[in-house]
């Protein structure tokens, strides 16, 4: 796990490259009680809604982007994640998630990193962007 003192402004986190499979999206939809066919799981419904194919729910994109920080800095490191859904996110396509450190500060006894975070596609599509606040421990 990284320490706060090792971080510089402009440092990059990631990328975490993942793909959301049809089965993964269906499992995710089931857990929030949305297992009826929808633009998230059904190609025809997605096309009728003017999407090229089934897309990820926004809350699933958010869960994937949170993984970047919890993998890097631990399960309780992510304090705040604020995202804008810019473009529909497709299934079965590589998604690259990365962040850039834009500020470091100590606040109320916590070491805080502010980050810009972005999910992009294989051709540079900017699917989801936003900001995150992450805490890191100090060196012992």
């Amino acid at each position: 796990m990284p320490y706060f003192e090792d971080i510089e402004l402009g440092d990059e986190v990631g990328p975490l490259v993942i793909e959301a499979s049809d089965e993964g999206v269906l499992a995710f939809c089931r857990v929030w009680g949305n297992d009826a066919p929808s633009r998230f799981t059904d190609a025809e419904i997605a096309k009728n809604d003017r999407f090229p194919g089934p897309i990820l729910p926004g809350i699933m994109s958010m869960a994937l982007m949170a993984r970047l920080f919890t993998n890097w800095a631990g399960p309780e490191s992510l304090k705040d994640l604020d995202l804008v859904f810019r473009q529909p996110v497709p299934h079965n396509s590589p998604l690259s998630i990365s962040a850039t450190i834009t500020d470091t500060r100590q606040e109320d006894g916590e070491n805080i990193l502010e980050c810009d975070v972005l999910m992009t596609g294989p051709e540079g599509q900017r699917y989801v962007g936003g900001k995150a606040l992450v805490t890191l421990p100090s060196k012992p």
Partner: peptide, 17 residues
């Protein structure tokens, strides 16, 4: 079950989750 379904859907690998 709720946490396992959520983590399966997102491909989570962190053992704490």
């Amino acid at each position: 079950d709720v946490i396992k379904s959520f983590t399966m859907g997102t491909g989570e690998t962190n053992p704490i989750f």
